[in-house]
């Protein structure tokens, strides 16, 4: 978790690139922000399995009891690469695919993450040590 701020900066740049250079102009009216509720708990993530593409506000509630972070990565069809420990996702390698990160949050708190989702498959995960492998990963299909 030492390098979380760096990750955040990279992710923000990535989102900007994705949204700014996607060539898909925002449609007024239909492009209003939607809120998608996500719940994290030991060691599971609850979220809709599909969501419409566009601007989405992910409202992530940590229901504990442990702290959790929240990472949104566009996965395409392949599996996420792991670090050499074999337990955590190698965030450097999915840096370009990462569309948003919420830093580790205490149980009982809720944080919003604003993302622009393009159609495709995304992974919602907590990459704290052991959490990904312990069950905190969910597939999200954007149409």
């Amino acid at each position: 978790m030492r390098d979380a701020p760096i990750l955040t900066g990279i992710a923000t740049v990535a989102v900007a690139l994705v949204t700014g250079c996607g060539g898909e102009p925002p449609r007024s009216g239909a492009d209003h922000e939607r809120v998608v509720r996500v719940a994290e708990r030991d060691f599971h993530i609850s979220a809709p399995s599909t969501v419409d593409a566009g601007k989405v506000r992910l409202r992530v509630a940590n229901k504990g009891p442990d702290d959790h972070e929240f990472v949104v990565v566009r996965t395409g069809s392949g599996r996420l690469p792991l670090r050499r420990d074999g337990l955590t996702v190698d965030e450097d390698r999915v840096e370009k695919a990462t569309v948003g990160i919420i830093e580790p949050a205490q149980p009982g708190t809720t944080h919003d993450l604003q993302v622009r989702l393009r159609p495709g498959t995304y992974a919602l995960l907590c990459n704290m040590s052991g959490h990904y492998h312990g069950g905190m990963s969910r597939r999200l299909v954007v149409r």
């Binding site: 442990d66 704290m128 052991g130 959490h131 492998h133």
Partner: peptide, 18 residues
């Protein structure tokens, strides 16, 4: 062994968070 290491990592991580 992966299961064992995952559990150890979780234990360790939760302990740290606690």
């Amino acid at each position: 062994m992966l299961r064992l290491r995952t559990l150890a990592a979780l234990t360790s991580n939760v302990s740290l968070n606690t």
